[in-house]
Design a protein around this nucleic acid. Structure first.
Length: 281
DNA sequence: ATGCCGACAGGATGTCGA
């Protein structure tokens, strides 16, 4: 079974590119993030025409995750357990039957977490009303990121106990290590590279997950994201933040894991590229 | 020091991303 994850940066803006990639790569499962669509505006028909079933957890304008599958999509769960009032659509999970067994798959869009500090930017004139607004808008993004990762860890722990093939795949918004970054100094003050962010990811991995790509190679210089700005793609200034975390039962069936780098050079590309994994299931 | 680019909502330009 060929499974993939791709932060498409708007499924509607990216529809032609996603359709083209599905025709070429023919994955059995594609987890998408940042679809930036509600369930109503999600272009399900286009994917159904290519032979895919769709499970969507959408949101207007921001975030949004989905799972496409050539096989049936069963036991769908939308959202992580957590406090009421978290309206951000960042998690969808389902059970997919393979030829020889089931695999549980989650499409994950972890929070970015920037800016790091409440007053990292301008605070206007400093009058109390503006200060209060700035504080309200900018406080807590990094805290939300770390809290969300804790919620993911708690949920992942329960899933691991099922002892079944499991793939938690998506945009983790964490640069796991310096070798996953073109220039660590550039990202040193970014939420994606903070020690707390890396610790939050490690804490999940230490439950018993393996970074599928890192099971294949220890080499530096493999990225999944290149900023649209400042010629980052042309200069290969990228970072690897799109990960496939596998349970032991999934890892033992893995035969390949690759990053489809050329997609970044395509027509009207996303700033992320697909990460693909082959499982003997 | 900040913007660079791109998508969105809405109908100008601010918000957000990483």
């Amino acid at each position: 079974m060929k499974i993939a994850t791709w932060n498409v940066n708007s499924v509607r803006a990216r529809l032609a590119a996603v359709e083209a990639w599905l025709r070429e790569a023919r994955p059995d499962v594609l987890c998408m993030q940042e679809i930036k669509s509600t369930d109503d505006t999600f272009p399900a028909q286009a994917f159904e025409d290519l032979g895919y079933n769709c499970a969507v957890h959408g949101q207007k304008t921001y975030n949004g995750v989905a799972i496409l599958s050539k096989r049936p999509i069963e036991d769908i769960t939308r959202g992580l357990p957590g406090p009421d009032g978290d309206e951000q659509a960042r998690y969808i999970e389902a059970l997919i039957p393979g030829d020889t067994g089931m695999v549980r798959i989650a499409s994950i869009y972890a929070p970015n977490g920037n800016p790091l500090e409440a007053f990292s930017g301008k605070v206007g004139t400093g009058f109390p009303p503006e200060t209060a607004t700035k504080q309200k808008n900018e406080t807590g993004k990094f805290a939300y990121k770390l809290d969300w990762m804790k919620r993911l860890k708690a949920h992942a722990e329960g899933l691991l106990a099922l002892k079944e093939p499991l793939a938690l795949m998506g945009d983790y918004n964490v640069i796991p290590a310096d070798i996953d970054c073109h220039d660590p100094a550039v990202w040193a003050n970014d939420a994606l590279a903070q020690p707390q962010s890396r610790a939050a990811l490690r804490a999940i991995e230490h439950l018993g997950f393996t970074d599928a790509f890192r099971a294949q190679t220890a080499a530096a210089g493999h990225y999944s994201f290149w900023d649209y700005q400042a010629g980052a793609w042309q200069k290969n200034r990228g970072i690897r933040i799109d990960l496939i975390l596998l349970s032991p039962q999934a890892l033992d069936r893995m035969t390949a894991c690759t990053i489809d780098k050329p997609v970044r050079g395509g027509e009207k590309p996303s700033d992320h590229v697909p990460v693909v994994c082959e499982l003997n299931i």
